[in-house]
């Protein structure tokens, strides 16, 4: 009997406590930028696709919900011919982001992805690619890599000497 009254008193006391429940969706909280929500593909500072289709996000994914096929354009840049994430399987663990060597795949604070049909949760590259750089500013993989692409010759990457002339006898 006493414990019941004690519980009632405890509940009653909450009537004057400050509310912590946010009245979603009328009010929305600001989530921190590192929140692991909807996955996007970002672009490099020059506006080109960052993803080089190395397939590391796909292999890191514990549920195998990322499928992509690599291709190469006429300038020698690698890009994903298709890039598909099945969000009905995604567990938002963020391993893909961690694995990405080019800062292309990033998780965003957006979590409002509800759909009436599961098929609507299949995102293709068009749905994933954003216009900006996302959380990581300034990084351009091809400026660091040794690969020659259109607009960047051999030896033009960071910390590279011009291509050597093997026919020269000069030391």
């Amino acid at each position: 009997m006493f414990s019941i009254l004690q519980s009632l008193w405890g509940v009653f006391q909450h009537t004057w406590r400050r509310r912590v429940t946010v009245q979603y969706p009328d009010r929305k909280r600001t989530l921190p930028p590192r929140w692991r929500g909807r996955i996007i593909l970002s672009r490099d500072p020059d506006g080109a696709e960052r993803c080089v289709a190395c397939q590391l996000c796909a292999v890191a994914c514990p549920v195998g919900c990322i499928a992509l096929e690599a291709a190469e354009d006429e300038h020698g840049r690698r890009y994903p011919e298709f890039f598909r994430i099945n969000f009905s399987r995604c567990i938002f663990c963020g391993y893909c982001e961690e694995a990405c060597p080019t800062c292309a795949i990033q998780l965003t604070p957006d979590n409002e992805m509800g759909e009436y049909h599961r098929a609507g949760l299949v995102y293709e590259k068009n749905d994933l690619l954003i216009a900006g750089q996302g959380k990581h500013h300034g990084y351009n993989f091809y400026r660091v890599a040794g690969l020659q692409i259109g607009g960047k010759d051999k030896g033009a990457a960071e910390n590279e000497r011009p291509p050597s002339d093997v026919r020269s006898l000069m030391p």
Partner: peptide, 15 residues
């Protein structure tokens, strides 16, 4: 064992 994309390869045709 690390074959990837098994839950995404065909879902564009059938979920």
């Amino acid at each position: 064992p690390r074959y990837s994309g098994r839950t995404a390869m065909t879902v564009h045709r059938d979920i």
